[in-house]
Design a protein around this nucleic acid. Sequence first.
DNA 1: AAGTGGTCTAGACCACTTT
DNA 2: AAGTGGTCTAGACCACTTC
Lengths: 263, 263
Amino acid sequence: MTQTVLPPAPTGAPSNSGVTSNVSGSPTFSPLYQQIKSLIVQSLQSGEWKPGELIPSEVELAYRFKVSQGTVRKAIDELSAENLVIRRQGKGTFVATHHEAKVQFRFLRLMPDNGDAHQPENHIIEVKRMRGPAEVTRLLDMKAGDSVVYIKRVQFFDGTPIILEEIWLPGSLFKGLTVERLDEYKGPMYGLFEAEFGTQMIHASEKVRAVAADEAASALLKVAVGVPLLSVDRVAFTYGEKPVEVRRALYVTSQHHYQNELS
Amino acid sequence: MTQTVLPPAPTGAPSNSGVTSNVSGSPTFSPLYQQIKSLIVQSLQSGEWKPGELIPSEVELAYRFKVSQGTVRKAIDELSAENLVIRRQGKGTFVATHHEAKVQFRFLRLMPDNGDAHQPENHIIEVKRMRGPAEVTRLLDMKAGDSVVYIKRVQFFDGTPIILEEIWLPGSLFKGLTVERLDEYKGPMYGLFEAEFGTQMIHASEKVRAVAADEAASALLKVAVGVPLLSVDRVAFTYGEKPVEVRRALYVTSQHHYQNELS
DNA sequence: AAGTGGTCTAGACCACTTT
DNA sequence: AAGTGGTCTAGACCACTTC
């Protein structure tokens, strides 16, 4: 410990060549890794790397953005924590996709009280284009009266109707969406949205209440009028916190429950 | 870029002096920062640093554990992500406490449909010690028939009864818990558990259903029999994934909702 | 053997808070 | 000025996957 080697060439503050220079005192300061993160999100959003695909390695991204691998790593770490990408040691980093069981559990919290979860069976009741109701267009950040796609469906578990859903989507983003398209598609609806319409749902906000079954719900869910149902109002978002789906669901919770982890 | 400075003294693989040596091929391998994390959790659990208090700085912990500051940083980063500690730039890292609004929202997801959340008013109905029901002792990892503390209470928001709860706690951990103790305590119940009984709730798992109000719920929540109520069955855990509370709550959701973020 | 992400170190400077 | 966490770099080796 007596040696006092000459200090290495001072690296210190990064030069930030290639990315917005972080001048001290700059009002719009943001850390380099956040800027890198934004650039990666832009590439995800633009479709440069599609769901399920491999994105460039950390070394390659570091070279592209002219930053250190550690900075790229921190950016990807956060994207991984937000479930936008999935890291696999030895293989690389992949764009998250709804064609995976894990992801589907994140967006459907309904579990059977005992036994394992099965794939639900979809019965589309109605698909139509319409002027969006005021509340829907407000939640979707659209102009009043803008066109939306409306979907009504029932989901069966083991032959029993459990979920009744109404869904509203921006008409501009889901032009070719028909009942046939929905019927022929196997797997989760968000998988269809991702594969056929290039819209990736990355997070959602839900309001849950207990309500009584009305005549319509009673008929479709095969329960008596007045039976308690779980009402789940969802707004789902794609990249950039842009709302792209409004959904109102009713769950029969006599044999199922909504599972939630508080942490 | 032409200079090729002589390489710095090879540091390379860490010697790991002071902590379990990570011999390659060891069957019980775990990264250094995970071991550090466990040691920090032990200190939290033992009460060496109490809720709300400052823990030692990264530099100090690095010296204590004989690892680099970066390794301590990664350990604390994860603890911060898990809400066990809170980092404050310039000040230090603090042990998370239930005496904070933020934490309370994490454990009570009920929000008014419009307007701001107010502090609820507690009305304790009953507190007693009893032999734990089979399902309760099972969920709490206790032996059948072990002693538990039972609490029944109603919570009022703006003078209206909204929540009816039954709570079961291990008798051994909550010896002096009485109705007076609960009545005189202002603030969230988990704050009392933390301050008076040294038990810190760090996460919980909930099963949510819609049920019909029975006679008892009807009387206490001032709603008609049969009205749909949100049923929330919770198991709460302290350090080390140890279950220490079972709670069954009924929420009136005509003016409130259970808020949940899917991400 | 080569490439990927995962861990660990060492050192510099920045932003923020307190003394 | 001193101490804290926050950012950034550079380089090493490890664990895992594929060729």
